[in-house]
Design a protein around this nucleic acid. Structure first.
Lengths: 131, 131
DNA sequence: CTACTAGTTCAAGTTAACTTTAAGTCAAGG
DNA sequence: CCTTGACTTAAAGTTAACTTGAACTAGTAG
């Protein structure tokens, strides 16, 4: 597959694919002339990267978790602790979501008069979650 | 209150407070010499801003939520849709977390050979929302 | 009065994740 | 052979949300 085919199938622009390659997140298996040639498995690899991005991991973190081949050694302890970390984040976000939903329906004339909203504000002041 | 007191009480660095003022998110009520003077209510306002940030609003979006007079005027529909957005994110995070936990324990030589991991990837490929 | 401290301004720097631009290359069609 | 179009590179530009640096000032302690 050439880059435009990968772009089309993955939904990612070619510039992004080149950028990912430069960053070491993906690899082409060769060239035809100047053009990069990718194996079909690249799509799976990109799906994995996308998954990580959606979950809020940085490209560096993703690169860190998986070898360029996507194959062997993923440090299992690292995965476990990333999972734990993620779990904490989920808790924060869930609280935030519930707060937002409540505020959206709350009949108090001003959000500031609603105790749930107040609580949310206090929690927000405390919570300093990573991005 | 001077800026360092606000910084201390809000947990935000002075540079951020100056930046927020420049952006029009907060206002000082005057000066003592060169120094900005803030009213106590600034803290609630900052908490609100922090809440918004944590909920995924951009500073510009937050600025939009305040009326020209500086009173907060939060559109309930916006809260609802941010809640929905957050909910989507939570789903992604949850999928990722489950995937990480599974991968941490999975005995398959490559994660790509594991059906659970495959399923996860497929779910990730589907999700193509925000940002 | 002089020094010190905590504030000030404005401009420039930072980071992440890309995108854009300019200039160049190669294979294919006419 | 020449043009076209898809691809290439390297470098610079973009955006958000800040942070940092340099040069400056006002109130206060001694």
């Amino acid at each position: 597959m050439d880059i435009s085919e990968v772009a089309k199938k993955s939904g990612l622009p070619a510039s992004t694919l080149r950028y990912y390659e430069e960053k070491g997140l993906i690899r082409s298996i060769g060239r035809q002339g100047l053009k990069r040639v990718f194996p079909p498995s690249i799509l799976e690899r990109l799906a994995l990267i996308t998954l990580g991005r959606n979950a809020g991991f940085s490209l560096d973190e993703i690169a860190d978790m998986f070898t360029p081949e996507g194959k062997a050694d993923i440090d299992r302890a690292k995965l476990q602790s990333k999972g734990d970390e993620l779990n904490e984040t989920i808790k924060h976000l869930t609280a935030m979501r519930d707060g937002l939903y409540h505020a959206a329906k709350c009949p108090a004339p001003s959000h500031f008069e609603c105790p749930t909203f107040q609580k949310l504000l206090k929690r927000a002041a405390k919570a300093r979650p990573e991005k």
